[in-house]
């Protein structure tokens, strides 16, 4: 009922015209949860900064001032102050965004691709392949990720984000794979899959055109979750010094701030901005994830709405309350 969006037809056609029900594009946009909109907006700002940041940075982020030994607070020429060696913090932030965002997205893409391929194959094929792939996923799940990362990344050449992204992906795919496998298992038994087989569709076609499109919400959520995991982990690793310390990212900024005793020197402008940006980036991804969840699960949406529309007295409606009696419907005409 609530899926119908067009205005009411006083004397509708008995044939129920299909066109009446199609929701307009504006309506579809309106239905996107606020959480998702806010999350997406913040994320887009980060992506824009990642693209143009290094160009709009006022200084070379690595340029030092000869003779400076203490961090300087924000001034007109250095809006976010400088580090102990006189490097501009704002420029470091603007340049460092790219590395962090690229690493996150890259890991998200690789890990999600892995989990989709492994999850759907395991779920669709069943039997022995499923047992094997599930075992593999479970083994990866119980690997102690952080120590392993420290060891592996310590050996890898620190050139670009790709090696780190690959290692993070290899350790990060099993969560998504397990969820997607479960969903595939349930979709595999649906009648529309049997009906597609009945038409003579091949297994590959069934996986990619019948099953996968129904998992888009789940895959998107898994992607967002993986990006978040990659960003937090990469920041943590850089903070520990296990990364290319000659490049700029939020993690390396925190590493240098820690090394330069920023907290002890009360140089909040040095350590707080990268920390806040990591938190903000994480929050945008979490909001986006919640929003996608609501979009894919109408029950969450109507639960949110039921709390708003149904009022019993002054408090919001609870499941045990009786049906409200509303003598006058505001929209009622007759």
């Amino acid at each position: 009922m609530s899926a119908l969006a067009a205005p009411a037809d006083p004397l509708p056609d008995a044939q129920l015209p299909a066109t009446v029900i199609t929701a307009g594009r504006r309506e579809a946009l309106r239905r996107i949860p606020v959480k998702a909109k806010v999350g997406a907006a913040i994320l887009i700002v980060f992506i824009v900064v990642a693209i143009i940041g290094p160009w709009i940075a006022p200084y070379d982020p690595a340029a030092t001032t000869i003779g400076q030994a203490l961090p300087h607070g924000p001034t007109g020429s250095h809006l976010l102050g400088t580090t102990a060696t006189g490097q501009d913090v704002l420029s470091q932030l603007l340049s460092g965004t790219r590395s962090t965002v690229v690493l996150g997205l890259l890991t998200g893409v690789i890990a999600t691709a892995l989990s989709v391929v492994i999850g759907t194959s395991a779920g669709f094929l069943g039997g022995l392949p499923d047992d094997g792939l599930s075992l593999l996923a479970n083994v990866f799940l119980v690997l102690p990720a952080l120590p392993l990362l420290v060891v592996i990344l310590g050996y890898l050449p620190h050139t670009g984000e790709l090696p780190t992204a690959i290692v993070l992906s290899v350790l990060g795919w099993p969560w998504g794979a397990r969820v997607i496998r479960a969903q595939t298992l349930s979709l595999r038994g649906r009648d529309f899959v049997a009906a597609a087989r009945e038409s003579g569709e091949s297994s590959v076609r069934i996986i990619f055109f019948e099953i996968l499109p129904n998992e888009i919400g789940l895959i998107a959520a898994s992607f967002v979750g993986t990006v978040l995991y990659a960003i937090l982990t990469s920041v943590a690793l850089a903070f520990l010094g296990v990364s290319n310390l000659s490049s700029w990212s939020y993690g390396t900024m925190l590493y240098w701030a820690q090394g330069g005793n920023a907290v002890q020197l009360n140089a909040w402008w040095w350590y707080a901005p990268p920390g806040i940006l990591v938190a903000l980036l994480g929050m945008s991804l979490v909001l986006l994830n919640f929003g996608l969840d609501e979009l894919g699960n109408p029950r969450l949406r109507s639960a949110a709405r039921a709390g708003r529309t149904g009022r019993a007295g002054s408090r919001s409606w609870r499941p045990a309350d009786p049906t409200p009696v509303l003598r006058e419907l505001p929209t009622e005409r007759s």
Binding site: A306, T309, W317, V325, L329
Partner: peptide, 10 residues
């Protein structure tokens, strides 16, 4: 009165 909102008795 066992219906839950959005149902209302009008």
């Amino acid at each position: 009165r066992l219906l839950r909102p959005p149902a209302v008795i009008t």
